[in-house]
């Protein structure tokens, strides 16, 4: 009996050490996002609270905590309250399998990449539940839009993952990273990286694909009826999901915790720092896209997903498989 408590204690300690940095970095990333957005538009952005405005997100969080939570009278109360919790939980549980170095991973499971994919595909439920339970037309329309959007872009992400798996021969995330020791997959699979990046934008409802919350048409989409801490949880979940997608991109294509080369100045920096650096790099790209590209029309979004990305990534699967087969490069068991 006692050893169970011991295991639970150690694991909760590990979980705490993973979750607290993730939550803090989510707060920092919101600040970074707003700053980059502002710099592209020649504004200053949040620069008042703390040095360079670093504590802006903490101040915002404090504000959200003290605001009143309004639950609409005609809403479905249980599901209404459950929706932000689901979003937040799903965004955080996925971090369990992200490897920060060969040994620093909470759960080194055999089907790591499938787990990541499953959790990111479950993310749509928070949005649908919130939109439906609000019992109001703008949230409902936003939820319907986002359900269609996320399901369509998941398909191309799945096929891109197949491309990477063909080169690795394992579903374990650490194996995927170690397979990139010779060459990062971004070089042989560059078109897939571009499509993954764009699909990740759509999957996380980021601009230019933020149609579920298009303020010109839908007020704030599925978040319209939410207030206070519940709104903040949606918001945190969204950014945690964005970070997760960046982590997924850097593990699949940018070599995860591997340094760019095994030479002196690079290999003394610990792997976790390399991963964080790569995540930040991808996130800055995310933020730049938000500032630069205008929002897509809905039919264009669907056309892009189904008629361009899906066939293209399918063709690329065939090309990758044939190449590996012809040159006898297929990974062995």
């Amino acid at each position: 009996m006692f050893e169970y408590f011991n295991i639970i204690l150690i694991e909760s300690y590990k979980i705490l050490f993973l979750l607290v940095p993730v939550l803090v970095s989510v707060a920092m990333i919101v600040w970074l996002d707003r700053r980059i957005w502002a710099f592209v538009q020649k504004r200053r952005g949040p620069n008042v609270v703390g040095p360079f405005g670093l504590f802006q997100s903490l101040a915002d969080a404090l504000k959200y905590i003290f605001k009143e939570i309004i639950i609409p009278a005609s809403s479905n109360k249980i599901i209404f309250i459950l929706a932000p919790i689901v979003t937040m939980t799903l965004a955080l549980i996925a971090w369990a399998v992200i490897p920060f170095s060969e040994t620093h991973v909470l759960a080194n499971i055999n089907v790591g990449i499938l787990y990541l994919f499953a959790v990111s595909s479950l993310g749509v439920y928070g949005i649908i539940m919130g939109g439906w339970a609000s019992n109001s037309k703008y949230p409902f329309l936003g939820a319907i839009r986002s359900a269609a959007q996320m399901v369509s872009y998941e398909v191309s992400i799945g096929i891109i993952i197949i491309n990477v798996l063909l080169c690795v021969g394992s579903l374990n995330l650490n194996d995927i990273v170690l397979a990139q020791k010779k060459i990062w997959f971004i070089i042989p699979l560059f078109p897939m990286f571009v499509i993954f990046f764009i699909s990740a934008l759509a999957e996380t409802n980021r601009p230019p694909f933020d149609l579920p919350e298009a303020e010109a048409e839908l007020v704030a989409g599925y978040q319209t009826e939410y207030s206070g801490m519940m709104y903040a949880m949606f918001w945190l979940g969204e950014y945690a999901n964005i970070l997760l997608m960046c982590a997924m991109g850097s593990i699949l294509f940018l070599g995860g915790w591997l340094p760019p080369a095994e030479i002196f100045p690079f290999n003394i920096i610990p792997g976790a720092l390399w991963l964080i650096f790569k995540i930040l790099l991808l996130f800055i790209l995310f933020a730049l896209v938000k500032a630069i590209v205008p929002r897509y029309r809905y039919d264009q979004l669907m056309k892009l997903g189904w008629k361009i990305f899906l066939p293209f990534s399918l063709i690329w699967v065939i090309i990758t498989a044939s190449y590996l087969f012809y040159f006898n490069l297929l990974p062995t068991l």
């Binding site: 499938l114 499953a118 595909s121 479950l122 439920y125 649908i128 359900a147 996320m150 399901v151 998941e154």
Partner: peptide
């Protein structure tokens, strides 16, 4: 593998479409 596939296919796609249709 089966468990994850169940999550991805049934929960991630089929049930979303169910919800979609029902709504």
């Amino acid at each position: 593998f089966l468990g994850m596939m169940m999550l991805i296919v049934y929960v991630g796609a089929v049930a979303v479409l169910f919800l979609f249709v029902v709504m």
